[in-house]
Design a protein around this nucleic acid. Sequence first.
DNA 1: CACCTAACTTACTACTGGTAACTTTCTCGT
DNA 2: ACGAGAAAGTTACCAGTAGTAAGTTAGGTG
Lengths: 226, 226
Amino acid sequence: MKQTDVMGKAPTTTERRLNARRPGRPVGGQLEVDREHVLDAAERVIARDGAGASIEAVALEAGVTKPIVYDRVGGRADLADALAERLADRMVDAANQALQSGGQTGADTGLTRQALTTFIEANLQVVDRHRDLFLYVTGGTTEQTALGRLKLAERSTTPMTRALVAWRRGFGQSAEVAEPWAFGIVGMLQMSAMWWLTQSDRSARDVADQLAELLWHGLPGGDRSA
Amino acid sequence: MKQTDVMGKAPTTTERRLNARRPGRPVGGQLEVDREHVLDAAERVIARDGAGASIEAVALEAGVTKPIVYDRVGGRADLADALAERLADRMVDAANQALQSGGQTGADTGLTRQALTTFIEANLQVVDRHRDLFLYVTGGTTEQTALGRLKLAERSTTPMTRALVAWRRGFGQSAEVAEPWAFGIVGMLQMSAMWWLTQSDRSARDVADQLAELLWHGLPGGDRSA
DNA sequence: CACCTAACTTACTACTGGTAACTTTCTCGT
DNA sequence: ACGAGAAAGTTACCAGTAGTAAGTTAGGTG
């Protein structure tokens, strides 16, 4: 598998570069391997090999060597961070799309209970579709990645915080609760997703509806007495 | 497993055993190093060195060698599991104690908003007191430990699920929501704790009160219109 | 007493994240 | 035009970790 003679054909730069096994600066400028390329490869590896994927496997899948990965995306914690942002964006997008196709505009207009259910269900389905990525991102032993988990949350919560601020202001109520509420809700969604994925056989819609019920009416439910 | 209580005939049996550096079966029966001893050592190491503590460090702190740790508690995932159970128990205890000293009995009688705040605050304070243990337990890359995180949740949720079932039944409502609600609430608490520990300078009581507000009245707040 | 088993310790494997050192190509000032 | 230095790779390596196999001694048993 060692084709040392390079001059035979003139393959496209990509081909030759990715197979370059000899050290030294590559001919013809920089490798067209950027951050996104590596992140895509990482997602593929994680989807294939599970959440325990190693940096080396990512480099192999991306067709580059390890130091390239470190140059493009940074260390393992940074990789998890970047993937967390992607996943969070996908969740936000899915939720927005679901809300729009349902006739709800989500953030700007009044939030309804129905919209809340839709939002939660969309989130569950994204987690379901990217199961191992979710595990990879929410895992991580070092303190760095523990904070990275917060970053995923932050990315998810930023739009939610904005929506909550507007929502509360619309009722003339203090918006100070917006941030803890947003983090709390995201935590609820993450844990529920984990439970749903591994221990429950209910439908996503059922779980979403039940969580929406809690978030909308609160613990005492519709008719409270205490 | 019985810890063979050796007579005190030989002074410092423990001392000599723990310092035994020569291979072979120890004199005077089995080492009185049981699971609890190792778990205690693990907690000390984590409190001292942070969440990145290694098995080897745990073994050293416990005064034993690595295979002993593997024999007594199992691999790294099992260790995290066991510590998770301990932490969860401590949380439940703290919450119950706070509720009782506040005149509330928590699970059996009617739950009030005030009791909910107390409950949440007690949880936050336990996490604060065992910061690195919390990080250690909620971390972990492998799928095993990811499920272990669920185990922590499960241990916390079991009493809560029971309470919720009773609570809902008391209102003549379906108790099917109890399990997802319990997991969701625990997730909310975990994420909120993380946020509070690392990014917020509010008091535990304030955060607890704000989360209780959400869980009690729901998103629309006291006066809803939508 | 000889031998087998229990209960350790030592020493090792396999792997991982991360980095230093080296090699080649490009660029640019003189 | 040409040589020095910067740029952009690859190789080879290091340190540390989870987990285990093999070796060693004390205790029990026919």
